[in-house]
Nucleic acid binder design. Structure first.
Lengths: 179, 179
DNA sequence: GATGATATCTCAATAATCGAAAGACTTGAC
DNA sequence: GTCAAGTCTTTCGATTATTGAGATATCATC
């Protein structure tokens, strides 16, 4: 992130820049994991991201069931693309759609047991890895890590929503940063 | 991840499943952040991922400068796609390519100062968010978190390499998991 | 009931990505 | 020194996921 090797004094506590790199690296690794999963199962990377988001469920800021609209947000796709993704997943037998009884405009997306087992089987080694790493930490430390991860996620989520509202209400869209 | 709501006893320490969800959610949020960055700058999401990977530098298992080949791995793209990404970034003035003097087959990718400043400006709120979250933790706790993140990243990286070697040396490619 | 808003889907057009093949260069053996 | 095999990158036509606008169905309000 620095233009030249910064001769920063050896800091004891990792700074935000270091955390940014750590988080980015980890996120990149998670993406690759999903990509390999996709390749192994004959799916597209986007489809896997969607399937995992469906399984992860509605853990975001706004609660409620998983709908195409929520996936559109979470995957940053257009509505047409979400329809295509869900069509592919449904055709492959991984998910099913059902109309909400209360609001028949809404479609709720559910994953099938087979898809869950498939994911569990594939991610077993990942869970092993997580367990191995976790074994190096005390229960207290693990709670700290989990708390940090949760706080970061919600923090970034709030930041994203705030920024989107800014650009929506602003005079016009934020101009690209030109240097 | 469970087919039905598991009635697991209230566990004190987060298990690997909970960590998986946490990490996935965070990774998803990081992706969205990059996507918004791309939209704001008129870039493609892939281009931003590549630019960030270039800036992050060669922090992976294998050391060395950033080359198209490394990006091909890290972004899970084909060589042709990497060339296209670098062409776009170079045309936009964000990076430059240079042939390695020692091995003239290799191309080294460098980012321009302007790209660095652009990223720094855009990610400033993210850094603020990171700082705000970090303020809730003691230096000791932050070190623990950083250690966990680093260990997870290298662990997943090793796992991925091992799995790829397995499929490469195996009788034939691993069959899709069918249930 | 009519109107506006919301949620999803349809479909033609676009553009990013793939996949194979070629070019440039290096390494090792003969 | 030369040849062959291997590596890294690029080129380019074909494929296909995604876009973007519009259509459809449903809900909420007056």
């Amino acid at each position: 992130m620095s233009d030249q090797e910064s001769t920063a004094p050896a800091q004891r506590t990792p700074d935000s820049k270091a955390f940014g790199n750590l988080l980015q690296g980890l996120a990149s690794e998670m993406n690759l994991l999903g990509h390999d999963f996709a390749a192994a199962q004959g799916l597209h990377a986007t489809d896997v991201q969607a399937l995992l988001a469906i399984m992860r469920g509605s853990t975001g800021i706004t609660p409620g069931p998983v709908t195409p609209g929520r996936l559109r947000e979470e995957l940053a796709l257009t509505s047409g693309a979400v329809t295509a993704v869900l069509d592919r997943l449904e055709r492959a037998g991984h998910i099913r759609r059902s109309r909400d009884a209360a609001d028949r405009r809404q479609v709720q997306v559910h994953y099938n047991p087979g898809a869950s087992r498939m994911a569990a089987a594939w991610f077993a080694p990942v869970a092993d890895c997580t367990d191995a790493v976790a074994a190096e930490f005390s229960p207290d430390e693990l709670r700290t890590v989990a708390r940090f991860l949760g706080r970061m996620t919600t923090g970034l989520e709030e930041l994203r929503h705030a920024r989107r509202e800014d650009t929506a209400t602003g005079p016009d869209s934020e101009p690209p940063i030109r240097i």
